[in-house]
Amino acid sequence: MLAGLLALLGIGNDPAHASRLLMVAVCDFVLGAVALLPQWARAEPNTPAWLGLPSFLVLGLSTWSFGGSASGTGPFLVLLYAWAALHFPRWILLAYAVPATLAYLVPLILTDQPPLILGSAFILMPIAVAVALLIEAQARHLREDRERLARIEQWRGAMMSTLAHDVRTPLSTVRMVLEELRTEAPPPVVRMLDAALRQTTRITRLAEGLLDVQRIDSEGHLQLDRREHPASALVKEALSHIRASDGDVTVDVADEQTLYVDKQRFEQILVNLLTNAMRYGAPPVVVRVVRENGHDRLEVRDHGPGIPAGLRERMFGQFAAGGSEGIGLGLWIVRQLAAAHGGRAFAEEREPGVAMVVTFPSLSSKG
């Protein structure tokens, strides 16, 4: 298309060859229209390479139309080679050498150009082929890397989904057995059974988190059941799933404060933040909920060593902080759940410690 427009503009500079230039422009536009046909997307990968042959022919026609001036042909020939290098294997680039050379030389011969001009083909063509081969090598490496990453991602997704589904069924049976034993067990055994039940709950949440990752990756979103809830009740219920000593966690939530959230997802957010704060930070951990500028703000602040500024954003990536005690999905899931609510998740510096903050649009802002 660009070559066609340039041919039309050339009519103004060379009216004597207007008919030839118009013919070149028409050929360029027709070739461009053919290249845009949707059938090429369904063809074999190398089939569009046939478009290169009429393209070389049009380039030769353009050189002849301009009276043997190859100043416009050379750059477009290199561009044509670059296009081919991005899409086709190297053998096609080498096969192009003969028609490309003919497209460049034949018009020059027909217009009686001197040997010096004809000799330029022995400089231009090797350069065009060399540039194309370099581009093809880089494009091939990028395609191979992308295919390898796609295979790894597919394997990871299948592994996570299988693990999550296969773990939940036996966990349900284990939990039922533990709860049944707890009803008639003496107090010392009850404490041990409670610890076992907490661990089964933790593993269940991990499996659900892996399923959330798969749902977010495959669907790009999560379905939420958002309702207005008392914030203090939500926080207290989430705290019941955390094993913490007295004084480890402090709650700063007003009695009148409400949250317009999906109850289950909010609990998942808060449990992840609390677990992260108690694992990597230091007590006391302060849970605070306030309303600011039409948004409700959940803040979980610890008094540990903090997080360097350069790492705060990376902490919310997938597998960013995996280790012996986790796989690094907690904060990433928090960010995805916050985004599903229409809010944000981020880290703020504190002295000492760090505050993990999640915002939610309030019900009043929805109205």
Rank of each mutant, 00 (worst) to 15 (best):
F319K: 11
L211M: 11
N276Y: 11
R279G: 03
T111F: 00
R227L: 07
L105V: 14
R140Q: 09
L273R: 11
M23A: 15
I11Y: 03
A158T: 14
L274R: 04
A195G: 12
G294T: 10
E349M: 10
V30S: 09
H229Y: 13
E144A: 10
L6K: 02
P170C: 06
W83L: 13
I117F: 00
V287W: 03
A84Q: 05
L37F: 02
G68D: 11
R168Y: 00
V249L: 10
L9C: 11
P308E: 13
T63Y: 00
D166Y: 08
S69P: 00
G67S: 07
A121R: 08
L6Q: 13
A321Y: 12
M159R: 15
A82Y: 05
A7M: 13
P75F: 05
L37C: 09
V34K: 07
F76Q: 02
S240A: 11
S232E: 14
G52C: 06
P352L: 08
W91D: 12
F88Q: 04
G328Y: 05
V357H: 02
G220K: 07
T111C: 04
M125A: 06
G32I: 07
G330P: 03
E228V: 13
S55W: 07
G353W: 10
L224E: 04
I117D: 12
D217F: 01
A231Y: 08
E349R: 11
N13P: 00
P186V: 05
G323E: 08
S65N: 04
G310F: 01
D14H: 12
G353M: 05
E299I: 14
A164Y: 07
H229N: 04
D255T: 14
L36V: 13
A33T: 13
K236P: 00
A128H: 13
A254L: 12
I117S: 14
H241W: 11
A196P: 00
N13R: 14
H141V: 11
A84P: 00
L259R: 04
G322W: 04
Y104E: 01
E179K: 15
L234P: 04
D246A: 15
L116S: 15
A164T: 09
R198W: 01
E144F: 01
L337S: 01
R297N: 01
A43L: 10
P361F: 07
P114K: 08
G353H: 05
K236F: 05
D262R: 09
P170Y: 03
E348C: 08
I123D: 01
A128G: 08
P126S: 11
F316G: 04
G10Q: 13
P48Y: 08
V289G: 08
D217H: 05
A339T: 06
T111M: 06
V251Q: 06
V287R: 07
L337R: 15
H17R: 15
Q39Y: 12
P308S: 06
R312G: 08
A207W: 03
L79C: 03
Y104R: 06
A43E: 06
D296C: 10
F266E: 10
R168W: 01
G306C: 04
R205A: 09
G310D: 12
M176H: 12
L329R: 04
W40F: 10
L53A: 12
N293E: 15
S65Q: 03
L2E: 06
L102N: 03
A347L: 14
V189A: 15
Y260I: 03
A339Y: 02
S62K: 01
Q268R: 11
F266I: 07
L93G: 08
R143P: 02
G342V: 09
P305Q: 10
L116Q: 15
A95Q: 08
V129H: 02
R279N: 09
N272C: 02
